[in-house]
Every structure is written in C-alpha cells, then in structure tokens.
C-alpha cells in the first residue's frame, strides 16, 4: 500500500480535527464579543474578560467529563449534587482542619471520584438507563451534601484556594489559572478521544454498544470509567467554585449546574444520542453561554434574560446539527 493511499484511509477513519459546529461557534463568539465591545467599551478589558474566563472554567471542566459520558450514550444529571458534596466537604476541611491547597484539591477530587464510581457501578453493571440512576443519585448526593452542611452555611473560608480564584493570586501573565487548567485538560481529552484506542472506544460504545462488545471493547469498564472521570473533574471544578465565591458557602451551591453543563455540551455539537461529539465544542459552548450572561449584565438588562438566550442557542445549535444530518442522509 502506498503512502498516499494510507494517508487517504487515515483521513477517512479519523474525523476532521475541527467540526463545522466548532467553526460556527468560534464565529458566533467573535461576533458577540465584537458587538459587546462596540456597545459597552468596558467589555474588552482585562477586568471584564478575566472574570468571564474564570466563571467559564467550572462548567467547561465538568463538560469534558459530561461530553465523554454523553458520547457513550449516557448522561449524568447528578453533577449538581456532586458539586455540593465536594465543595461543602472541601470548604469544611479548609475551615475546620485548615488543610493546605494540595490536600484540599486531593480531597475534593477523591470525593468526586467516589461519587462518580457510585454512578458508574450502578449504570454499567445495573444495566439501567443512566438518566434514571443519576436522577436517583442526584437526590442521594444532595442529601449527603446537606447533611455535611448541617444547618446553615459554611463561614469564614480562608483564601487557601486563591490560586484558582478571580484575584491577582489566581493569574499568571494575566491568564486565570482555573481557565488555563481547563484548557489544558480539554486539550488532553481532545487528543485522548481522537488519537488513542481507548478514546475511540467511547465513540464505538455510543454508536452501537453491542457491536463494540463483539469487537472486543470492555463496554462496562469503559462506561464506568466515563462516570468516574466526570466525578474526578467535578471534584476539581468544586475547588474552582469555592475559590470564586466569597468566604461563605451556602446550600444552593451546585443547584441547576447539571443543566448548565448539559447545555454547554449540546451547544458544542455533541449528539445526545451518543457516538458523536467533541470536548473542544463543549469548551466553546460554555464560553458562549458565559459570554452571553456577562454581556446581558453589562448591557444593564435583567440577568435572568440570559437564560432565554441559552434556550435559543440550544435550539439553533441542535437544529443546525439536525439539518446537517438530514442533508447527509439525503446525499
């Protein structure tokens, strides 16, 4: 086989590195930022962009795990509850045990991984649809979180996690660490999903789990690992959440975040039916949603109006994908 033919086959096997959806998203974000820069001069300044990037980080980071879960044909609606457990546990450790940065991060990530393991075991080996199991565990996690809260809030959280925060300690050369870590992990996940056999297995499972099993993929273990990974990322993202907040953590932490993450994933072009998706799109989706929220506030509109735009973006993004799929079928 000649090198040219081999290259051709390679091209056919691997999807293109950047999907059409991602190109469109970059375009939309550029247009949006340009429009906001024109209408509110304060938008394109470091003081406005840096908090925007910091706020994008937790949703985008969990989105990496959620993308992989959704690629396998599953879903995880328990991440909101998991954020609550990880962040209250870590906040309590910071206040009562005065642990350092590394211990706090390890604790949070380990707790998240454990919660992900619970989901993964139930879904992979219980053979029940993921949405039902995670609806159930969402309640269990919230119970756990509220029990750790006891009554009321966690007060007087020290600035140990300022490395991930909005302050000057949270930036290197003007780039917020939280966002940087998110971008690096997204890039790593992108490479893993695209260029390693293990990564391709997730797509195979989402395309046809039975066929994947017959082809030698250990389906249950792979599915389990997707939920554990999501849990680990929830743990890290919870550290970002604590660092972004004030010195008080209240019981509403994490509420509704599962839907925000799923929104970012589907705006990013990942198919909810499984088998198709990209973590790069998810990062862009999260950035777009946060840009809209930031823009709505800076334009002086009611902040809840940004949810309306999120809804419209979901419809447009997925609608465009549906039309493309229809065009592919008709060709």
């Amino acid at each position: 086989m000649t090198a040219v033919a081999e290259a051709k086959i390679r091209k056919r096997v691997l999807p293109s590195p950047v999907t059409g959806q991602e190109v469109v998203l970059v375009g939309v974000i550029v247009v949006l930022w340009a429009a906001l820069a024109v209408s509110t001069p304060a938008f394109l300044t470091a003081g406005s962009i840096q908090p925007l990037l910091v706020a994008t980080a937790p949703v985008a980071l969990i989105g990496v795990g959620m993308t992989i879960v959704i690629i396998t044909g599953g879903i995880d609606v328990s991440v909101g509850g998991a954020i609550m457990v990880c962040s209250v546990l870590t906040a309590k450790a910071l206040v009562e045990a005065e642990v350092g940065l590394a211990v706090a991060v390890l604790l949070s990530v380990a707790a998240g991984g454990l919660l992900g393991l619970v989901n993964g075991v139930l879904i992979a080996y219980g053979r029940v649809h993921a949405i039902i199991i995670t609806f159930g565990t969402a309640n269990l996690f919230m119970f756990l979180g509220l029990r750790i809260f006891g009554s009321g809030t966690v007060n007087g959280i020290p600035g140990t996690l300022a490395f991930f925060g909005r302050g000057p300690d949270g930036r290197t050369l003007g780039v917020p660490h939280a966002f940087l870590i998110t971008v690096l992990l997204t890039a790593a996940a992108w490479w893993w999903l695209r260029h390693t056999a293990g990564g391709r297995h997730f797509f195979a499972i989402g395309g046809d789990a039975q066929a994947a099993r017959l082809a030698g993929v250990r389906v249950q273990r792979r599915v389990l690992s997707a939920y554990v990974l999501t849990g680990l990322l929830v743990g890290l993202a919870s550290c970002f959440v604590i660092a972004q907040g004030t010195s008080t953590l209240d019981q509403s932490v994490g509420a509704g975040k599962e839907l925000a993450v799923i929104a970012a994933v589907v705006i990013g072009g990942t198919s909810i039916m499984g088998g198709r998706g990209s973590v790069l799109g998810t990062l862009l989706g999260a950035l777009l949603v946060q840009s809209v929220a930031s823009g709505v506030t800076q334009l002086g509109w009611r902040s809840q109006l940004s949810d309306l735009f999120v809804g419209i973006f979901i419809i447009v993004a997925v609608g465009a994908d549906l039309l493309r799929a229809r065009a592919r079928r008709n060709r």
Binding site: L259, D307, I314, V318
Partner: peptide
C-alpha cells in the same frame, strides 16, 4: 431531552 432543556431555560427566563 434537548428540546425541553431549551424551553425550560426560555420559559424560566
């Protein structure tokens, strides 16, 4: 799931 997620956000807003 997607359609009603979108309308959830829109109606809530």
């Amino acid at each position: 799931l997607i359609a009603t997620l979108a309308t959830f956000y829109a109606y809530k807003s």
